[in-house]
Design a protein around this nucleic acid. Structure first.
Lengths: 339, 339
DNA sequence: CTGTTAGCGCGTTCAG
DNA sequence: CTGAACGCGCTAACAG
């Protein structure tokens, strides 16, 4: 078995032999080095074509120390938000000439630690990581290795770059929109049992700020509680609130999935959307457009998020080694049929 | 700049020096080689921990010829079906100890050709590829390099492995279910202008077979036409059929997206689902569960698909070099609220 | 049970 | 403008 040979099994040396030149010369034409005579270039190119030579990327990597790959570490690729983020990051990567290695952490602490560990194995040139379980402090404590950019809420300022939207502000904007439409009893769906991330809290905070600023009192009953992150959990949360007699005329949801759950729960309870209850989702994923009625949603600028993350990462890969930067990307409220 | 050194910058040799042993011994403990004395193992492990040694995977690759990565080439990671497939493939990969490199072809011919080309660069040990644009014949013509498994419909038997569901049979099953529920005027949403893949045709074929077998005549007007693959295209297709006075009491959709579009179009037209019209989606993606009413859908066993693909690939990576194998995975009809 | 050594394929000095 | 030689870090024969 010819270990280490790429599929073609053709090496630089083979091309050099056929063309009757040295490896360096072949390398020169492969890399479009300027100072190569026309005749030489043609001869070498002919040999390359004849043999179907493809440079072995692994060898090139070992020699250059650059892998041309960046890791995207996210909880689950099949969650709408992450899938869309993945798409944008992938496109951005293609633009910069990088490939994307997707690591699904599946909300597992060990898998998240492994992501950090991978940085030290020279597997990738950089990593874009949205942590869900491990503390940002733990990340900061680890030996600084390959460039890293964090996505989502950094619990506290850390010594690594990260990009996010202003969750509190976005929640406030969402609630203000709802208030502007005349809604007064706005529920929040939902705080999730065992949620250790910061984002729900930040959103809840913005929700409360907007209500207070508008002189609408807070009602603890309007902050719904969910046992988990799943669709069914969301449905149960809103259904039991309704069953318990909680009255509301709007629901701000922590993500589009819960918004879909709200739609379902309201349908079951015979409430009309948006006549009786307005529903505002979060993330503005594709499902918001496809749902009937089409879902209004708080929309983080995912494209901007992806390009900001990549720009930060690229900067570090180019050698920047300063302290952690903190980037906030824009959001907007997309109104569709549910508000 | 210390090119090629992994982030830690500590090499096998460094560990060996510190522990006062040879590289081979260090290598042995790194690989959990059995015949190493306890004392030696502890001493080496201590050195590894002290230095924070991490093996450089690129170097290992060059030496072994195995990259430990497989490429998943799909059109768009943010399409529900592919995102879910990605998740399963990723889990399967983790089980086998491989990492997944995601290549989005974005339905671009050149990007698809590049996927095939990458095989020859030793970038990955194998590729799982769902082509959307290039002909399977073109794939077959290319030099056989790294193991390849195709997903989806292979237009004709080719000399590479592939796994798919029986589209025709699944469509027949779907229509039979609808017939069993008393529906007689079943529409198909939709044939798409410019679609070069085989799958819609196969599904349409099954649809027709079931209708004929049941003695229900075919009506060309019931085969709807769409200008494109998008949600809006689907809505337009069904809306114009309704506007044109086409009568139907059920719709078999080519994917869940079109099923969502059908729900929207029917809502606009004031038709009730499922009372007036039953809707059957395809792919059974998450959106089917989240939609209200919850969508019935033809459900390919994605888990089985992923594991079959991986098994085939693994087999080839282990050296199998026979002719192309053709695997069919199960499907089922999941009934929810729209039928 | 442990040490030595020759590659893996390419990039890149440094001479010519 | 071209060629020879060494190194990237690790693996796996082959000795010992």
């Amino acid at each position: 078995m010819t270990l280490g040979r790429s599929a073609g099994g053709v090496r630089l040396q083979d091309v050099a032999d056929l063309a009757g030149v040295s490896m360096k010369t072949v390398s020169n034409v492969v890399h479009d080095y300027e100072h190569v005579s026309e005749a030489m270039r043609d001869k070498v190119q002919a040999a390359i074509d004849a043999l179907g030579y493809r440079p072995n990327l692994t060898a090139r990597r070992l020699a250059t120390g650059k892998t041309g790959m960046i890791a995207l570490a996210i909880p689950e690729i099949d969650q709408f938000y992450f899938a869309e983020l993945g798409r944008h990051i992938g496109e951005e990567a293609a633009r910069y000439g990088y490939r994307i290695l997707v690591e699904q952490t599946l909300n597992d602490v060990e898998a998240e630690r492994a992501v950090i560990r991978d940085r030290d194995e020279g597997l990738v040139d950089g990593v874009i990581f949205q942590p869900a379980r491990i503390d940002t402090l733990e990340i900061a404590r680890l030996r600084p290795g390959t460039p890293l950019v964090l996505l989502g809420e950094a619990a506290r300022p850390v010594n690594t770059d990260h990009v996010m939207i202003d969750n509190t502000r976005a929640a406030r904007d969402g609630v203000e929109m709802l208030l502007g439409r005349g809604r007064r009893r706005i529920a929040f769906l939902a705080t999730v049992h065992g949620d250790i991330t910061e984002s729900t809290h930040l959103r809840l905070l913005g929700y409360q700020e907007a209500l207070l600023a508008a002189g609408v009192g807070l009602d603890a009953h309007l902050v719904l509680q969910s046992e988990g992150f799943g669709f069914e959990d969301g449905v149960r949360a809103i259904s039991s609130a309704i069953a318990a007699g909680v009255e509301f005329d709007a629901v701000l949801c922590r993500d589009d999935l819960f918004a879909m759950a709200a739609l379902r729960g309201l349908e079951i309870a015979g409430r009309r959307v948006p006549e009786d209850v307005a529903v505002l989702g979060w993330d503005d994923t594709a499902v918001a457009r496809y749902s009937t009625p089409a879902l209004s949603s708080v929309s983080p600028d995912k494209q901007a998020l992806a390009s900001a993350a990549f720009a930060l990462l690229e900067d570090r890969m180019q050698g920047y080694d300063g302290s952690g930067r903190h980037e906030i990307v824009a959001h907007s409220i997309i109104e569709r049929a549910t508000t």
